[in-house]
Design a protein around this nucleic acid. Structure first.
Lengths: 200, 200, 200, 200
DNA sequence: GATGAATGAGCATTCATTCAT
DNA sequence: AATGAATGAATGCTCATTCAT
């Protein structure tokens, strides 16, 4: 890599780091391009070399988080279905806690708001999660862990909405609600109840 | 009531109606005080006679919706616990669909965002729901429908997060996800599994 | 008129005067809303109470000038055709000189540039002048000063383009070219030559 | 010519061609250095190796057009004065039509605006035209086609302002006004009237 | 000569809120 | 109570130009 390419990466990272910091501290509403560039120690115009719109840097930050969760999930290959789903839940919520309440608020806000990212034609995080869970359940059918007649779509939605509900309630309670405790209980408790009928 | 007091009520209602309309049509981000007063047919300054801050009118609109839900719930007094909770769910989601996606987005957005309503010292909608559900469960214990050792807090949170998760996913899917179908399935299916252990 | 309406007129005038001053001094390119409001002694936002777009104040200024010319023209009713046209020319150019080179530059610039005024659906100044001249010639035909077969359109265009050409050359020469001298010579000289064939 | 010098010429031409294209398509206001370099397929910085300022490339483009007109004029040597001037007019307007309305708008705009080209110490196009016409008339005096007492300056200005007026009106009318028709009529008609007194 | 990242001044426009009338 | 003019901070984005590589 040439020195120039290196510099480019560094500047890009400085911007992302600064934006992430500010996002964690103050949330999206208080995020301005000028604040980001000031914090990153570059000129205002530099921002627009790397991002076409203000929203794009937020999208990139979120994408980074999603990637990490995905990596975690893919490591869980060996275990059985309930363990897998429990781990999925736990990873999701661990991530949620790690990122902090403002990032999660932004995550929900952006997912809910259709006008957020003009160029963000990526599949939404929500759809992404739906697909990933469906995949896990379909694989379980293939592996004879679940019956053929399992209502994959229905179960997926129940699980997903529980997951997003946990996160949403956590944000609403301003962090008082303890997501991982409840998540664990959900897994131990509700997941078994839901799946029992279809487990082989 | 004097004629003046009447006029006051009328103007207040005109403002609320106009804001509600705009909120449903365009969502919160596109809502400006000027638009509201224009639509209501009053001067800009009049708004500030009735509401100290822009957010306050939104809070009032949401409060109206919550009230309606509460009234529905209170009518359900006769039935047994599972029926009651099923009805609660159904009413909640019926309301969600009725209000439309933009109102719900605003509802979530406002619930999530701590900076929304400066003067809104009301208990949050979320806390309100938590308390109402706890109440239902506690009453069920008193009425000997549920065992004494029922983990009320835990069950409440599981149910609430499922409820808010449904709504959140509905908004995220831009209305594709059908909340009432899934809600019904949740009630028939998951609720029984969760409660069975504690039902007397 | 109430005190309030008076104040409105005053502020509006302050803005127009300030903008006109700056336009005369620096031309359109150097004209910013902030400069205008600073010069007018009002807040930046006040500008947008009176004008939807920056260009609109320029349009209004120009409209003011056109109006004045029109008033002059309408006073000339008694005289014969050549006198009338000479006076028209002279008034036009007197106005040009009075307004100054920057106003005229803006006038030409705005007339030439189709993207200038978003809301300016007014007939263009050029078309306005064309129509006014046509009118003068048509009236002369009615009054038996000109033959029936006078090529009104052709003469109008020759005269108009001479008029605008004078103004344009004046701007190009940065004021060195003396428009009124040349205009007078044009009238004495060229106008007679052009019209002689058609005069009765 | 070395290979390097060749390359230099090629890059220079690529820039000019790209700028000319964009100018014709969108006019000057929409012309940015980045657009030019993108269209030319070179880096942004490359532009500043060839042109000190953005305006300079426009000046060069216009200069190219002027050169062409000049070449046309110089071919006309044999004919008599009226024919020569008619041809001059016709060539001028043929060029105007050929270049298109956006180039002409820019031409006028640039001629009118004194702040356009910081380094452009060239004689202006207008002055250039004035001098060329004066030259033609002075030569006619020398060749005994015109009387000694012909008011060269006056006639020059009348002719030039008619010429620029035609072009200006063409731009103002957004191309509706047909310059070459009117030009021909001007030549047949007005030119003779103006000159008749001085022709020998 | 070529590159393209970096600069930073510049600018139109929005909008919640105040307050004199 | 009602008005609507006035405020002025806030902000996303553009773009000509520079300069290290």
């Amino acid at each position: 890599m040439t020195k120039r390419q290196e510099q480019t990466l560094i500047t890009h990272q400085k911007l992302v780091d600064a934006a992430e910091d500010l996002l964690k501290k103050n949330g999206f509403n208080a995020l301005s391009v000028e604040d980001i560039t000031n914090a990153a120690g570059v000129a205002k115009g530099t921002f627009y070399i790397y991002f076409k719109h203000k929203e794009d840097i937020v999208a990139e930050i979120c994408r980074g988080y999603f990637k990490e969760i995905e990596i975690q999930i893919n490591k869980m290959s060996g275990s059985n279905l309930i363990e897998k789903l429990s781990l999925y839940f736990d990873n999701f919520m661990k991530a949620v806690e790690l990122y902090g309440i403002n990032i999660c608020r932004e995550w929900i806000r952006a997912s809910i708001d259709p006008n957020t990212a003009p160029d963000n034609t990526d599949m939404s995080k929500w759809q992404y999660d739906v697909d990933m869970l469906k995949n896990i359940l379909n694989n379980a059918i293939k592996n004879k862990e679940l019956k053929e007649n399992t209502p994959v779509e229905l179960l997926t939605h129940l699980v997903i909405s529980q997951l997003y509900g946990m996160m949403t309630c956590w944000c609403m309670s301003d962090g008082i609600f303890e997501p991982r405790d409840w998540t664990k209980k959900f897994a131990d408790f509700q997941l078994t109840a839901i799946l029992s009928e279809y487990l082989i």
